[in-house]
Structure formats: structure tokens, C-alpha cells
């Protein structure tokens, strides 16, 4: 009976969606022929607060935002406040896991095999280099703090598996904390020097240079560290704890 009702709800919902998307009434539809009014157009031409430049080429220094990677410029600069929120979500998850898992009393880690022992140090080296490359070049190339940080965390897990002493989350927690503090602190510096939270107070730099778009670069570095530390601490928590502990 429940299943039939659920099916009915889904069918009604499907018809509703179909009708909404192919609405023949006059007005603006979901798939406009010409989407000239999207805010994203201004992000692409970097013309949010100034007139659109005729041409954007590498080395330009007069742009309102110096990140060559357009996605990054939206995520970290134009809508940086959302990213602070996303980072906070991850932080809340880590904190929640720490709240309701408890320490395992007798914990014996399984011993790693030879393959893990020999190969992991080598692999981890490359993983760390790639990870840090990804988040340090977030303003130039695809990627950024979140994927870079996740890569670093994967390296940490591999390392923990191969060394096989129980992971300690304290170090990661401190790193995570420092990264979080500096994110908000940068926002506050923007507020008190330029008058608006998370405003770029460092200048845009030359488009396409490694040292450009300072705010984006620094924030992505912080995000990378924070994501890596958070994911590692979550894994460390899972490693040491068992379900059902309330205090």
C-alpha cells in the first residue's frame, strides 16, 4: 500500500515537472532561447564593477579580478561567502562525527602487507605534490582547494594504512582550526580595510601569472589545507572510534 502511494506521488510529481518545463503559457520559460541576462555573463567578461574590457589577454593588470580560471573567480571571489559556508559544512560534519562516536577501548590495527609498506612512501610523495599543485594553481588551472585537499587527505590515509599505528586526529584538528581562523580573519581584514567582508584587499595582479589574484590564491591554499585536515581527522576519528558512544 505504501509503495503504491509512493509510486503515485512520484508519478504526479513527474507530470508536474513535465508540465512546468514545457509550459506553453506566455512568459519566461526554463530554457530561454537567448540567455543574455545571466549574471554569469558578467563574471565571464570580468565586468561586474567596471566596464567590460574589449579583450582579456594574459598579463592584463587592470582587471577587477585576476584569476585566469573563471570558475575559481566565481567560487572564491565573486561568491566567496558561499565557499566559506561550504567549508563550514565540512567542518560541521567533522565536528558532528567527533560528537557522537566514542573511543574504542581495545584497538589493534591490522598489520600492513609488503606491497603497502614498500610502495606507499613513493606514491604518497607524488600524491602530495599533485595535491598541493592542484590547490596552489587553483586560480590558473581547473581544480582548487577542494579537490586538492581531498587528494592530500587520500595521501594521509595511505600513509596511515602503511605505517599502521592508530592515527591521531589532534594534529589535523589544530591545522583545521588554524586554517578556519585565517579564512574568517582574511574576511575581517577585508571588512576593516576595504569596508566589505571578504573583499579583495591585495589587488588583482597580472592575469595568468602564478603570483596573481592574491586573494583567490591565499583562500584556496587555506581551503586546501582545511579540507585535507578535515577529511583526515574524520578518517582518524572513524579509525579510533566505534558507533554508539554518547559521551
Amino acid at each position: 500500500m505504501n509503495k503504491v502511494a509512493a509510486l503515485g506521488v512520484i508519478v504526479i510529481l513527474g507530470i508536474f515537472i513535465q508540465m512546468a518545463l514545457h509550459d506553453s503559457n506566455p512568459g519566461k520559460g526554463a530554457f530561454p532561447e537567448k540567455s543574455s541576462s545571466l549574471v554569469a555573463d558578467s563574471y565571464l567578461t570580468k565586468s561586474v564593477s567596471q566596464k567590460a574590457p574589449a579583450e582579456i589577454s594574459p598579463g592584463d593588470t587592470k582587471l577587477e579580478n585576476g584569476a585566469a580560471n573563471v570558475v575559481t573567480s566565481v567560487v572564491v571571489d565573486y561568491r566567496g561567502f558561499d565557499t566559506l559556508g561550504e567549508v563550514t559544512i565540512l567542518f560541521a560534519v567533522a565536528a558532528g562525527i567527533g560528537l557522537f562516536l566514542k573511543k574504542r577501548p581495545h584497538f589493534k590495527p591490522r598489520q600492513p602487507g609488503t606491497i603497502l609498506k614498500t610502495l606507499v612512501p613513493l606514491a604518497v610523495f607524488f600524491i602530495f605534490i599533485t595535491g598541493s599543485y592542484v590547490f596552489l594553481h587553483g586560480h590558473l588551472t581547473p581544480g582548487g582547494g577542494f579537490p586538492g585537499g581531498a587528494m592530500m587527505a587520500a595521501g594521509v590515509v595511505l600513509l596511515a594504512l602503511s605505517i599502521r599505528k592508530s592515527m591521531r586526529s589532534v594534529f589535523f584538528k589544530i591545522l583545521e582550526s588554524l586554517a578556519g581562523i585565517s579564512f574568517v580573519a582574511i574576511g575581517l581584514i577585508g571588512l576593516y580595510t576595504k569596508g566589505s567582508f571578504l573583499q579583495n584587499f591585495l589587488g588583482a595582479g597580472a592575469l595568468g601569472n602564478l603570483y596573481s589574484a592574491w586573494l583567490v590564491m591565499i583562500l584556496y591554499f587555506i581551503i586546501g589545507i582545511k579540507v585535507a585536515a578535515e577529511l583526515s581527522s574524520v578518517i582518524a576519528d572513524f579509525d579510533q572510534m566505534e558507533e554508539g558512544g554518547k559521551q
Binding site: 518545463l21 509550459d23 503559457n25 519566461k28 530554457f31 545571466l38
Partner: peptide, 27 residues
């Protein structure tokens, strides 16, 4: 966003009446 091209609540408010009615209801 695909209909009106903005996410700002105030701006959506001033142009929401131009959205097709069934789509507006679904939104």
C-alpha cells in the same frame, strides 16, 4: 537561475511575475 538569470532575492522578486505560470508554481 536558468529562467531569470539571477539568484538575488530582491531581483527575483521584481521579475518573478514574468515567469510562466506553471513553472512559477513548480519553483
Amino acid at each position: 537561475y536558468s529562467t531569470l538569470g539571477t539568484l538575488n532575492i530582491a531581483q527575483i522578486a521584481s521579475s518573478f511575475s514574468s515567469v510562466k505560470p506553471i513553472l512559477a508554481t513548480f519553483i
